Amino acid sequence: MSKAVVVHEYGGSEVMKIEEVEVGKPGPGQVKVRNRAVGLNFIDTYFRSGLYKAPALPFIPGNEAAGEILELGKGVRGFKVGDRVGYVSALGSYAQERLVDARILVKLPKSISYETAAGMMLKGLTAQYLLRQLFRVKKGHTILVHAAAGGMGQLLCQWGKSLGATVIGTAGSKKKAELAKKAGAKYTILYNDENFADKVREITKGKLCDVVYDGIGKATFPASLDCLKKRGMFASFGSASGPIEAFNIGLLVQKGSLFATRPTLNDYADTPANLNAMARDLFSVVSKGKVKIPVNKRFKMQDVIEAHKALEGRQTTGSTILIP
């Protein structure tokens, strides 16, 4: 038996319960993992509230964690008991122990701790495909990062700067703007006090941005499109303020033959080979110090309700983790 956070019905943070669950033995292609640190992400609140539907109720939330392998199922190759691993899964990481398909595991180098891995697997791999695949950021590019003080935002700022881009970050307060600057944003915009599209035009002297990375959604659309130069890329990867509603695709023509996409990690890390290549890239920039993973808040599993309240109350910066 293992302790886990279980959701029996959609709702507020109070619907999460700590329960004993039967883990069982790993089946073919699976391993049993003892989670040492679990990443908390805003998407976890979407599943808990029902904005995103779980495959079935009840379910265990959580999309990322790091720990060590306890047991191997039949046919597993390339791993052994005791290996330190990290993973991003569909759901189920808010648990002390769990079964995981070996194909979604990546081995952790010695330079990456469990807490660092748990705080960066989902966000770090997302940053990798956003910056290196969806739009390949290079020296001379100007990029706009919304919510630049958050865990995802700080990753994009750091990595973007290391690639030679000029990073503009939006933030909700002066304190958060300072965090974004420390992370690599050359310019910051207080979106509660300023019209960010006008400010981008002013900062860039009318040249605008090559790409906008938007995890906020409804509150920043369609103004984000006004921040892009002709043939620029709008990458919507989250909906912290609510989902973007249907819009007239003609907007993209009017604003300069723009590209708009709503990508997901699963479509980039869709094979073990792609996943491992992305992880190697991520671990490399972290190990070299180009990207730092600030784990600023740690919660024990029994404090998971408090943890979700902090996430939804925008009281977190950097990465937040759960210790099972």
Rank of each mutant, 00 (worst) to 15 (best):
N266Q: 12
G289H: 08
L282G: 08
A279T: 02
P294R: 12
R262P: 05
S287Y: 07
F283I: 02
A260E: 01
D281Y: 01
V286G: 09
D281F: 00
P263E: 03
A277R: 15
T261N: 11
L275D: 08
L258A: 04
N266H: 09
P294H: 11
K288H: 08
L275T: 01
Y268F: 15
N274M: 02
M278K: 11
V286T: 06
V285L: 10
D281Q: 03
L282P: 05
P263W: 00
G289C: 06
K292L: 00
V286Y: 04
S284P: 00
K292G: 00
K290R: 13
S284R: 10
L258Q: 01
V291H: 10
P272E: 00
N274Q: 05
G289K: 05
S287F: 05
P272D: 01
F259A: 11
L275M: 08
T264H: 06
V286Q: 09
A277T: 13
S287A: 15
R280G: 06
A279S: 00
L265K: 07
Y268W: 15
K292S: 05
R262M: 05
A260D: 02
T261E: 13
T261R: 14
T264Q: 12
A269E: 09
D281A: 09
T271Y: 12
L265T: 09
L258I: 01
A279L: 00
F259G: 04
K290W: 05
S284A: 13
S284M: 03
G289I: 05
N274H: 05
A273T: 08
K290G: 07
R262E: 09
L265Y: 02
S284Y: 08
D270F: 14
D267L: 15
A260R: 02
D270W: 12
N274K: 15
A260C: 09
S287K: 13
F283H: 04
D267M: 14
P272L: 00
N276K: 15
T261V: 14
S284W: 04
A260S: 12
L275Q: 10
L282N: 09
T271H: 10
R280C: 02
P272K: 00
K290N: 13
A279Q: 04
F283C: 03
P263H: 04
R262Q: 04
I293Y: 03
A279G: 02
F283P: 05
S287R: 14
Y268C: 12
I293A: 09
D267K: 14
A269K: 07
L265C: 07
K290C: 04
Y268I: 12
N276W: 09
A277P: 02
T271W: 11
L275H: 09
N276D: 14
T271E: 14
K288V: 01
L275E: 07
L258S: 01
A260T: 02
G289N: 08
F259N: 11
R262T: 10
G289W: 03
K292P: 00
A273W: 02
A279N: 02
P294W: 05
A277M: 12
I293P: 01
D270L: 05
F283D: 04
A260I: 03
N276S: 15
N266M: 09
A269H: 05
P272T: 06
L282Y: 06
F283G: 06
S284E: 13
K292A: 01
